[in-house]
């Protein structure tokens, strides 16, 4: 069975427009929510790799889905998340987010039916211009209308 191709979105910029600052008080609340002890010297919980890039990128979740011609209400699912840290994340610093959509591929699976697999890459840039981390997320976008 063949399906129409997904939108050609590879290369779409996800650069953020405003710096993202990991707020120290929010970091404390986040640590409390996952039973972690906040670092007294300003290190942020490493899970901010995901939060900072996701919130600081140039599109909302709904906007990212819309770029892929997908309604966020149809339920995007996280497939995987990969990160490489070059430095430790710290609270109070203005990080810049850059990134892009890597690929959007249409597939068919026995479990999920027709789906688009979205890969996008984001980087967190510290105030000195160095890359603090690079992350690549894979989302599964179920295409029930094509089933």
């Amino acid at each position: 069975m063949s399906f129409p191709p997904p939108p050609d979105v590879a290369g779409t910029s996800l650069d953020g427009t405003e710096p993202y600052v990991i707020d120290a008080d929010e970091n404390r609340r986040l640590c409390a929510s996952v039973n972690a002890v906040p670092d007294p010297d300003g290190k942020a919980h490493p899970i901010y790799y995901y939060i900072a890039t996701q919130v600081g990128m140039g599109k909302t979740v709904a906007g990212l889905c819309a770029a892929c011609d997908f309604d966020v209400d149809d339920g995007p699912m996280m497939g995987s998340s990969q990160v490489e840290f070059a430095s430790t994340l710290r609270t109070g610093l203005p990080y810049r987010v850059t990134g892009e959509i890597v690929s959007l591929n249409r597939k068919s699976s026995r479990k999920l039916g027709v789906m688009d697999v979205l890969a996008y890459r984001l980087r967190l840039i510290d105030p000195g211009g160095s890359t603090a981390l690079e992350t690549t997320n894979i989302w599964v976008l179920p295409r029930r209308e094509l089933a």
Partner: peptide, 28 residues
Amino acid sequence: GPANVAYIINALTAAFPGGTVKSLAMRF
């Protein structure tokens, strides 16, 4: 999903006090 990843990070940071998480590649 990222809250679930945070639990895994907590296990790592508790197992390696003073260590630094350098990379993760998690499948959901």
